[in-house]
C-alpha cells in the first residue's frame, strides 16, 4: 500500500518535472555529449574525420601555448577568488554584526545594485579607470604622487584580476553573510564569558562557523571566473587570452572542433574537480561542528 502510494506520487513528480527536464536534455545534455564525442575524433581539413583518437587530449596536455593559457586561467581564477573572498568577508561581517536588523535588506540591495549594470560596460570602465590616461593615473600624477603612469595595472593580468574581483563581489558577500547570520550569537558571548579575547573568539568561534559560507563563496567566484571570456578580450585586447578565448579560437577561427572540444571537456573536468575538492572541505567543516 505504502509502496503503491509512493509510486503514484513518484509518477506525478516525474510527470511534473518532465517539461524542464526534456528541455535541459535537448539543449544542454545533447550538446555536451556531442562535445564529448567530438573531443575523441580526428580533425581533418574542413571536416571532422570519424576516427577515434586521444590525440586532442595529448595536445591539450603537452602543447606549450595551451599550458600557458590553462595555467594563466587557473592562476587568475585562484587570485580573483582569494582577493574577492578576503575583501568581501569584512563587509559581510559588518552587515551581519554591526548593521541594525531592519536595515540589513537595504544594505544587501546597496551591495547588489552595481552588479545589475551592464557587465560589458563595467569591464570597459575598469579599463578606463586603470588605463594609461585613466582615472587612477591622472589623479595620482595630478596630485604629484607619481611622475609617470603606474604600469603594473595597465592592460595586464593584474587589471584582469581587479576587474573580475569587482564583477564577482556580491557573489562572495551574500553566501558569507548568510553563513554569518546563522551563527547563534550566544556562542560568541559564551566564548567571551570563558575568558577569550574578542580576537580569539572571532578566530575560534566565528570564523569556523562561517566557513561553509566562505567555501560557497569560493566556488561561486572560482567557477565563472575561470571560464570568463569578456574580461581578457576587453582589458587585454585579445593579447592575454584565458581558456575561454582559446576554446573560441579553436572552435571558430581555427575551425579545429575536436581540439576545441577537448579543451572544453578538460575545463569542465578541472571545474568539477575543484568543486568536489571544496565540497569535501565543506563536509569536513560541517562534521567538525
Amino acid at each position: 500500500m505504502a509502496g503503491r502510494r509512493l509510486d503514484a506520487e513518484g509518477r506525478a513528480g516525474l510527470a511534473l518535472i518532465s517539461p524542464p527536464l526534456l528541455f535541459a536534455l535537448l539543449i544542454l545534455a545533447a550538446p555536451l555529449l556531442t562535445i564529448l564525442a567530438t573531443s575523441f575524433l580526428t580533425d581533418g581539413y574542413l571536416e571532422i574525420i570519424r576516427e577515434p583518437t586521444l590525440g586532442n587530449y595529448a595536445q591539450v596536455f603537452t602543447d606549450p601555448i595551451v599550458r600557458v593559457v590553462m595555467l594563466r586561467s587557473l592562476g587568475v581564477a585562484a587570485m580573483v577568488t582569494l582577493v574577492t573572498v578576503v575583501l568581501a568577508f569584512p563587509v559581510a561581517y559588518y552587515v551581519s554584526f554591526h548593521v541594525r536588523p531592519e536595515r540589513k535588506a537595504m544594505w544587501l540591495l546597496l551591495i547588489t545594485i552595481p552588479f545589475w549594470t551592464s557587465y560589458l560596460i563595467r569591464v570597459f570602465l575598469w579599463k578606463v579607470i586603470l588605463g594609461f590616461n585613466g582615472v587612477v593615473n591622472t589623479t595620482l600624477t595630478g596630485l604629484g604622487i607619481i611622475d609617470a603612469p603606474l604600469t603594473f595595472i595597465l592592460y595586464n593580468v593584474n587589471s584582469i584580476v581587479i576587474t573580475l574581483a569587482h564583477a564577482y563581489a556580491p557573489f562572495a558577500i551574500l553566501p558569507i553573510f548568510i553563513a554569518l547570520e546563522k551563527i547563534d550569537r550566544s556562542l560568541l558571548e559564551a566564548g567571551r564569558d570563558l575568558g577569550e579575547s574578542r580576537l580569539m573568539t572571532f578566530w575560534r568561534v566565528t570564523l569556523p562557523l562561517a566557513m561553509p559560507g566562505v567555501i560557497a563563496a569560493t566556488l561561486i567566484v572560482f567557477i565563472p571566473t575561470i571560464g570568463d571570456y569578456v574580461t581578457p578580450e576587453v582589458i587585454g585586447g585579445g593579447k592575454i587570452p584565458m581558456i575561454a578565448n582559446l576554446i573560441q579560437v579553436q572552435m571558430l577561427a581555427l575551425d579545429n572542433r575536436p581540439l576545441g572540444s577537448a579543451l572544453a571537456v578538460t575545463t569542465m573536468v578541472i571545474v568539477a574537480l575543484v568543486s568536489v575538492l571544496f565540497l569535501a572541505l565543506n563536509r569536513r567543516f560541517l562534521r567538525g561542528r
Binding site: 544542454l28 550538446p31 555536451l32 571560464g227 576554446i247 572552435m251 572544453a264 569542465m268 571545474v271
Partner: peptide, 17 residues
C-alpha cells in the same frame, strides 16, 4: 547545472550542434 557551467561551454556546444 547551467548556473555553475562556464557560459562559453554552453554557447560553444550549442553552436556546434
Amino acid at each position: 547545472l547551467p548556473m555553475v557551467l562556464p557560459e562559453i561551454i554552453v554557447a560553444m556546444s550549442l553552436l556546434v550542434v
